[in-house]
Amino acid sequence: MKSLKAETHELSKPHVQLDIINNHNDRIKSLSKFEDKLDGIGLFPLRPTGIEIFQMNVGYMCNMTCKHCHVDAGPDRQEIMSKETFEYCLKALRSSDIQTVDLTGGAPEMNPHFRWFVGEVSKLGKQVIVRSNLTILTTNKFSDLPEFFKEHEVEVTCSLPFYSRSRTDRQRGEGTYDKSIVALKRLNEIGYGKKDTGLKLNLVYNPVGAFLPGDQEEIKQEFKKELKRKHDIEFNDLFTITNLPISRFLNFLLMSGNLEDYMEKLVESFNPSAAMGVMCRNTISVGWDGSLYDCDFNQMLEMETHQDSVQHICDFDLDKLNNREILVNQHCFGCTAGAGSSCGGATT
């Protein structure tokens, strides 16, 4: 499977995606606007509560091509963060008291500067989270990474959409589930996900289809029970993440005829409490080329931070960023539906 970009698919263009979720047909046009919903609860314009998480997308290259991927990542993607941009990120981190550095991709491990950068951040005494697809840890080149993660006390947050092979493989490709289990067992073996080791292993659940995630705690308990029963696997936390209607998931919604029902469900499920806690209020997202965004989803839609704030990591200014206006659009309903959704799971 190729990326939408490699196929020169129309949906690889951010303006086409935004047009679809705003104007696709009369049903889509008739939906409430996200700005108006925020305005109705006194949250517009949306502003940060203070940046606590420095999220870096270090490249769109990935060894997988998942059907729901909002990044449209894959082996054919060439965008990758340079060492110069990593240096700018280090400079920004040294100058601020931001404690959490969240590394995502693509497969962040595939960036050639990944290990060096984790080591540098570790020296600063900051917490590193790596968002791993798990299967990368079963390849020869990266099979020693679990020990590297342990050495630097990296928090490993990994994708596992379901505890069954069929549902996981439908979304992430044939053979994914079995490889993921191998990787999770390896992480468990060296202490990840085990009591009193301090080595955190978290799972990310996202629905395999056009429906919302249910109660995070209940799903976590079900995963814990089933993964223990089937594979003797343990983990710390589970984060439920709603699929946002962009990129490949948007393509799925269109192809399966689910776009209108899904968008209506997101809008109907708008939760003011979830809106209060959206992740863009405490996160800054750095793109592979150093551009700044309010979140990883805005990054994929090429919606850079507000022009009155700073827009590139080389101009990093925490005060300006903490006082910026956050850019929103209809995809944001994905983060405010039901119990809310963020890279750290439900927000209520």
Binding site: F162, Y163, S164, S166, R167, Y205, P207, G209, F211, L212, P213, G214, D215, E218, I219, E222, F223
Partner: peptide, 12 residues
């Protein structure tokens, strides 16, 4: 069906 999926039930 949707509610079961949302609440983490498997097809089985």
């Amino acid at each position: 069906t949707t509610d079961s999926l949302e609440n983490g039930a498997s097809e089985e």
